[in-house]
Amino acid sequence: MAEEVPLTGSSFARANLQRLIEMMRDDELSNRDWATMLLAQQEIDTPEVRDALLLAALDENNVVRAEALLGLAQRDKQLALPLVRAELMGDIACMPLFEAAETIADPALAPVLKAWVEPSDDKFLDRCALDALTACQTGNI
């Protein structure tokens, strides 16, 4: 998209948005991942976009789910809260999931985030988890 493909404002843009949403259901993981990330980053907030992100939040791949949850958190923190909490209780977490938790900044996430702040070999991810925990403990970002 290179920030040049419109997603709103015309029939051409509407067709682009539809194609992006369709790619979120593609058989190829890399297509689902990129499409979900791109839609999550947009400021578009319609029922159709939320539905697409909710569906992607159920994807078999944890990165796709995390990207979708970040997009949902940016649109509706209360809707995303239980989904992010459930994902944090799993065995795998990635940066967009911690970003979603940080965006939500709800103290209810602090107990499940504590398990992720133990030092690991990935200092960047450790920092993301700590930033999310801090936001949730203070209730703001």
Rank of each mutant, 00 (worst) to 15 (best):
V112Q: 02
L70R: 01
A68C: 10
L113V: 04
C136R: 00
N61A: 10
I44E: 02
A2R: 14
A52E: 00
E43H: 15
I92H: 15
D33G: 05
S120M: 09
R50Y: 09
L20G: 01
W116N: 01
E87P: 01
A108N: 11
R75S: 00
I21T: 03
G9C: 08
D27R: 15
G90I: 09
G90A: 12
T138H: 14
D51L: 10
S30N: 11
A57L: 07
P6D: 05
L130I: 11
N16E: 05
K123Y: 13
D122V: 10
M23K: 15
S30Y: 13
I104K: 01
D91H: 13
R65N: 02
L97D: 01
R14I: 10
F124E: 13
C94Y: 12
W34I: 10
R85D: 02
D106V: 09
D51S: 14
F12H: 13
R85T: 04
M89P: 04
D33Q: 14
G71C: 07
M37F: 15
L83V: 04
L58V: 08
E67G: 02
L130F: 10
T36M: 05
K123S: 14
L38I: 14
G9P: 06
V112F: 07
R75K: 11
D131N: 15
V5F: 11
L88Y: 03
A35Q: 03
A108L: 13
P6K: 06
A68V: 06
V64C: 06
N61G: 08
L7D: 02
K114Y: 08
A100K: 02
A135H: 03
T36E: 02
D106F: 10
L133R: 01
A57F: 08
N62H: 12
D122E: 14
Q78P: 03
E22W: 14
T46G: 06
A73R: 00
A105W: 05
A57M: 07
L133D: 02
L69V: 04
A80M: 06
T36C: 08
Q78V: 07
T138L: 14
Q74D: 09
I21N: 00
N61D: 15
D76F: 05
Q42V: 09
R75Y: 06
P107A: 08
L39K: 04
S11G: 07
Q18L: 13
A56L: 05
V64H: 03
E22L: 15
A57V: 07
E99G: 04
A68F: 08
E60L: 12
N140M: 11
K123C: 11
V63R: 07
M95Y: 12
L38D: 11
F124P: 03
S10G: 09
C136V: 00
A66D: 00
Q78S: 09
E99S: 09
L72Q: 00
N62R: 11
A73Y: 03
Q18D: 15
E102C: 11
V117M: 07
L72R: 01
Q74P: 06
C128G: 03
E87W: 05
D27N: 15
D91V: 13
Q137L: 15
T134F: 11
T8G: 04
